[in-house]
Design a protein around this nucleic acid. Structure first.
Length: 351
RNA sequence: GGCGCAUUGGUGUAAUUGGUUAACACGCCGCCCUCUCAAGGCGGAAAGUACGGGUUCGAUCCCCGUAUGCGCUGCCA
């Protein structure tokens, strides 16, 4: 700690040092043995002994002010009423109060908010993941979800309010500094993901389609067919938690089907061949595929052939997507459309 | 080292001025739905409130100590 030597220099000493041209700084003369008390809106009364505070440098040797001086003057000139900032600033409050006092200015109200923590409870850092909001926006977190999630980190609306999804307007209405708590909060990406998926589900298809198309384009999918894009959006909105997951789930609608080796056997057995050829026949008699009538076609095949359950659905699923898992078959067929469904089945028989 | 701030399930939080079976959400597990995967519905496990002392008829809540974590301790902000 600085020994406060400058304050004990005599006037003559100061004068001669000044004349000799030695570089100097201007410091704050902190009173000795005084307890500075202040009220923090979030934490209540905080006391700090001035003996633990250095004689702060206010003007550097190059003549420029340090943060502490500039900050106080700036806030006063801008008529700041409330200073709301991170907890790491709390120990510099007495320095600021002393400066306000020296100027004879009123001290604004103070509120020091808790820190956001890594899973291991250390201060949030780049080493353990993204910290910039841009990083999250890029991944396809919606701004509303981000705001909503962050608001709930260290704050809550109180008893009687069970909701957790709040619009900006609602947050503005409900938020008070008094209900912010004072301990650091671990940033839980799982809950953010959940909340983001809630917001995605709430977004209407047209808007959501617009939001995901950059991600699909980046994956080199041809999204020029707007109708198809809307249908794809309608399907995947229940699957994605973040917008950047869209290509992964939209893939089956945009990429050529590739039958994996482990599925060759299933797709080539006689029952599967029966199902697929029956389906082709029925499709030719169908004007247009809808979610429900495609299911009806499958029921019809079941009635006619006695093939049911997995042996009925799986060959169709594999033929249309090349995957064992995915949305409901009727939905998939509806999104692809009649022509494409027929094409995909046909392509298979040729192999 | 000194000073400051904090401490409720794995995580985020709740619990009128001390009196609840300590509540909700995420996550996890199970069941239902179902061709599958999600979504959705239902249910379950999970903290006795960091630890130790007080004060009190009674402490998550008040006081003290310890531990732990974080912050500050710059001619950085």
């Amino acid at each position: 700690m600085y020994d406060r030597r400058a304050r004990y220099l005599s006037e003559d000493e100061v004068k001669s040092k000044l004349e000799s041209g030695i570089p100097y700084v201007i410091r704050l003369k902190v009173p000795l043995n005084e307890e500075i008390k202040f009220n923090d809106i979030i934490r209540g009364t905080v006391k700090i002994d001035t003996n633990h505070i250095d004689d702060q440098i206010l003007l550097k040797s190059d003549g420029f002010p340090t943060y502490h001086l500039a900050n106080v003057i700036d806030d006063h000139l801008m008529e700041i009423t409330h200073i709301i900032r991170g907890e790491e600033w709390i120990t510099s409050v007495p320095k600021h109060i002393l400066i306000y006092r020296a100027f004879g200015w009123e001290v604004p109200k103070m509120a020091h908010v808790p820190l956001i923590l890594n899973p291991d409870k250390t201060k949030l850092s780049k080493r353990q993941g993204d910290v910039a909001t841009e990083d999250y926006l890029k991944k396809g977190y919606l701004p509303e979800a981000l705001v909503n999630y962050m608001a709930l980190l260290g704050w809550n609306p109180g008893e009687g309010e069970k909701r957790e999804i709040f619009s900006l307007d609602e947050l503005i209405k409900l938020f008070t500094l008094e209900r912010v708590n004072s301990s650091g909060a671990v940033f839980n990406i799982e809950k953010l993901n959940w909340m983001n998926s809630e917001y995605i589900k709430k977004t209407d298809n047209e808007k959501l389609a617009e939001m995901i198309s950059p991600y699909l384009i980046k994956a080199r999918f041809d999204v020029s067919d707007k109708n198809k894009l809307f249908r794809v959006t309608y399907v995947i909105k229940n699957y994605i938690e973040k917008l950047d997951e869209a290509p992964e789930y939209a893939r089956i609608f945009y990429e050529e089907v590739k039958i994996k080796d482990e599925h060759l056997e299933i797709i080539n057995n006689s029952s599967s061949r029966t199902v697929l050829s029956e389906l082709s026949i029925l499709l030719n008699e169908t004007y247009e595929i809808t979610e429900t009538n495609f299911k009806l076609l499958l029921t019809e095949i079941c009635d006619k052939t006695g093939i049911r359950g997995k042996s009925l659905f799986m060959p169709v699923r594999l033929a249309l997507t090349g995957e064992e898992h995915g949305p409901e078959l009727g939905t998939i067929a509806y999104v692809l459309g009649k022509e494409e469904v027929i094409r995909r089945i046909k392509k298979l028989n040729i192999q």
